[in-house]
Design a protein around this nucleic acid. Structure first.
Lengths: 215, 215
DNA sequence: GCTCAAGTGGACGACCCCGTCCGCTTACCG
DNA sequence: CGGTAAGCGGACGGGGTCGTCCACTTGAGC
């Protein structure tokens, strides 16, 4: 446990997080560190002292958004209708991701050494796995839905690129509705639905350094 | 019409295109120009003389792949089954995009002043619109399928990021199958399918400069 | 107040990419 | 052949990001 920060240092740290949050949301994860410092009204040295790596800044900034996601899963688990819960989680997380490009990138990126960030993610994934099982047992979710399909949905959603946030949100909603429709068990049956789905693919999370586009 | 190139210049131009093709496919559109020149075994000046802008290099490199896409649409138009043609086009173009990240980016990017590149794209889009109309008339494609949904599919497909090309292809196939499934008219009916789709969103192509990730 | 460690900001060197410029080379044509 | 213009490569200036270093400032406790 690090010793408590001095009052002014604590204040600066908050300003940095606020600046980073705004810039990440608007411009993605690869904004220059200097831009974050400038917006926060501090020198770059202060930024680097508090957050030695970009990864540490990112995981701190998005920690509570990630907790919100996990909370969404918990709520869904409390819903007596597992299919409604399933859809709700996918819809809400996709909307969050489209409203904040930085969060989308952070959400889809593996942070091997940001312990609590990863722990929260894993917890959410496990909750979602339970939700998935229940929805299948209730006969609402098609049986061949795979763990990796959730990642597939998020990656697909993350591919949306529209001129305005408003348009992006609309596109995301439509995409998610189409995919959820395909996941319905009552629509997946062999009658009229044709061939089985191609097999699921093992989808890893993105690896650092920050792709956005790269590998 | 520019005067014919000298033999050595023509040879270098071919090597540049070959190098650019390989690098764009593997690393996306934003590889350094110097890397292209190095791989081609020429100086950067030669590269810039032949292709003054990155855009001119990109559109030249992908011109025939784009023509292949247009050809796919033409084939599909010749198919007596418009639904099969519709699915075939989507599947083939998505596969091409996943096998070559550079082509995917070029495909989704507007090139206001690469006349013939844009012309080929527009031709393909018009052919696809005809295909769409026929598939709807045949009662196979849901009536609320919108022009923009094709872009939506491509953007979603472009969001896939997997550790290997093999995995990416598998993921893409599954995603495309899910989406095509949702587009089927016989599955879109009000019985059991629930609420209507959220409205389509106006999706512009990406604008330069090269997003990959950016805006 | 006074001390001093914690905190600060901006300058700096290293690196990378872009696109141009210029002196040298070489294919083409008569 | 030999002249010449097209072609060539690498160096270079400009701009940008990264992460560190150091001389100065300031909050906290006595």
């Amino acid at each position: 446990m690090p010793p408590a920060l001095r009052a002014d240092a604590r204040h600066n740290r908050d300003r940095i997080l606020e600046a980073a949050r705004a810039l990440f949301a608007a411009r993605g994860l690869d904004v220059p560190m200097a831009a974050v410092a400038r917006r926060a009204g501090v020198g770059v040295a202060t930024l680097y002292r508090r957050f030695p790596t970009r990864e540490s800044l990112v995981t701190t900034v998005f920690a509570d958004q990630l907790r919100t996601c996990a909370g969404t899963v918990d709520e869904a688990l409390a819903d007596p209708d597992p299919w409604a819960g399933f859809c709700g989680v996918v819809e809400k997380v996709c909307a969050m991701n489209v409203l904040d490009r930085g969060f989308a990138a952070a959400f889809l990126t593996a942070f091997p050494d940001a312990a609590d960030f990863e722990a929260t993610r894993v917890r959410a994934e496990e909750g979602f796995a339970v939700l998935t099982r229940r929805a299948k047992e209730a006969g609402r979710l098609r049986a061949d839905f795979d763990r990796s399909d959730l990642t597939l949905v998020f990656m697909a959603n993350n591919g949306i690129n529209a001129p305005s946030t408003r348009a992006a949100l609309a596109a995301s909603r439509r995409l998610v509705a189409l995919l959820l429709h395909s996941f319905r068990a009552d629509v997946a049956g062999p009658d009229g639905a044709g061939a089985p789905l191609p097999p699921p693919a093992p989808l890893d999370l993105y690896h650092l350094p920050w792709p956005g586009t790269g590998a």
